[in-house]
Amino acid sequence: MKTHFISVIAVAIGGALGAVLRFSVDLPLYDTYFPINTIIVNLIGSLILGVLTAVYVIKNTREWIKAGLGVGFCGGFTTMSALANDAVVLITNGDVLLFSLYLIISVIGGIGLAVLGYVSIMKWKAGDSS
């Protein structure tokens, strides 16, 4: 297990920024009926990490930059624990429909947007170099 101090610092700074940005989405959009705030951060974060994953394939990126942007920022911006919390609140409210909708939008949307981000950059790169 090899860790570089600079990567840990990058993760800390990225994580702090990501969490603060997520909080600034939570503040105006916090809604006990349907947690749209968590959906928004998770979908946008998945799109950004999909883009970054393609960028790393194309361009040799330093480890601490990858750690700061991907692990720190995107990881700190998005959250699975709030998703679990939201889902349990929806199901204990008896909203089976909203519960299902919430999970379907989050999971299919998140994976779909990661693919979209990744494929878009790879296609753009392929078109660029030909």
């Binding site: 990490l49 699975m80 998703l83 994976i111 693919v115």
Partner: peptide
């Protein structure tokens, strides 16, 4: 704790990208 520590400890973006890579 909820927004900060647990929110940032867990991640959804890596979940999405790792799922994509398995596909």
């Amino acid at each position: 704790f909820s927004i900060g520590v647990f929110g940032a400890f867990t991640t959804f973006s890596t979940f999405s990208v790792e799922a994509m890579q398995l596909i």
